[in-house]
């Protein structure tokens, strides 16, 4: 019994220590935002890698999600004779929830893994030590540009994903469910409010910060060898995904709880 309690205590202490380490790492990253030197070239590179190159995967995901959502809402709404809600529910569902969450998850899969693998490999091949000996702070050179780029790029990806998702719903609604095109667009535009869109973009920024921070943190703390880098990559994606869901719930409570 005592052994069981001891191992439980060790696990809890380990989890708390990890949470503390991640929070400190995030705070340290933010503090570097206000202290030079800055590396604009690294930031632009990260912006292209994280933002521009994630567009296809986020766009495709949003398109098919919007289409499937239209089908589901039509099928569900027809039970109550409320098929006309399809455009408005697709729009609000995409903009408030599915756009940011699915966009965040796709970026987590694509970006957190690649950041963790890249930085983890740099760690095990002593490139991080080399950076330090060359008078370059790895937090400033590697972490801050990626975290800043993700925090700014993911809201833009979410906005694009929202539009493509709504378009996916429109394509299915008009071509498959026989909605009138003009009515579909009017219902979408009339129903959406500015706060719906802004809340989704704020969520996107939070998810971008989480994704890049987890990628960098796990990469920097990668174990030795291929197995260590593999474990860091897996941990980055899993922790970023779980934190995205947790942050999504907290932000939804903050924004929309009555």
């Amino acid at each position: 019994m005592i052994r069981l309690l001891a191992s439980l205590g060790r696990a809890v202490m380990g989890a708390l220590a990890s949470i503390g380490a991640v929070v400190l790492y995030a705070a340290q990253t933010v503090s570097h935002l206000f202290r030079p030197p800055f590396y604009p070239r690294e930031f632009l590179n990260a912006l292209i890698q994280i933002g521009w190159l994630s567009l296809p995967v986020v766009g495709l995901t949003a398109f098919f999600t919007g289409g499937a959502l239209a089908l589901q809402i039509f099928a569900g709404g027809s039970r109550y004779g409320a098929e006309e809600v399809v455009p408005s529910i697709v729009a609000i569902g995409m903009v408030r929830e599915l756009g940011p969450v699915l966009g965040g998850l796709m970026v987590a899969a694509r970006v957190a893994s690649s950041i963790a693998a890249e930085i983890g490999t740099m760690k095990v091949t002593e490139q991080i030590d080399a950076l330090t000996t060359l008078s370059t702070n790895p937090m400033k050179y590697l972490t801050l540009p990626r975290v800043l780029a993700a925090t700014l790029a993911v809201p833009v990806l979410v906005a694009v994903g929202d539009s493509i998702g709504i378009f996916g719903g429109y394509v299915v609604g008009v071509n498959r469910l026989d909605f009138n095109a003009a009515t579909y667009i009017k219902n979408t535009v009339d129903f959406l409010e500015g706060w719906d869109i802004i809340s989704g973009l704020v969520k996107g920024a939070a998810f971008g910060f989480i994704v890049a921070t987890m990628g960098c943190y796990h990469g920097m703390n990668s174990g030795r060898g291929a197995q260590g880098v593999g474990r860091a990559t897996k941990s980055a994606v899993v922790s970023a995904s779980v934190l995205i869901f947790a942050a999504n719930y907290i932000l939804t409570e903050l924004f929309f709880a009555a």
């Binding site: 740099m122 091949t125 002593e126 490139q127 030590d129 080399a130 950076l131 000996t133």
Partner: peptide, 12 residues
């Protein structure tokens, strides 16, 4: 300081 690392540690 200058340092030559075991695996060269060049930035890929």
């Amino acid at each position: 300081f200058g340092m030559l690392f075991q695996g060269a540690a060049l930035f890929d």
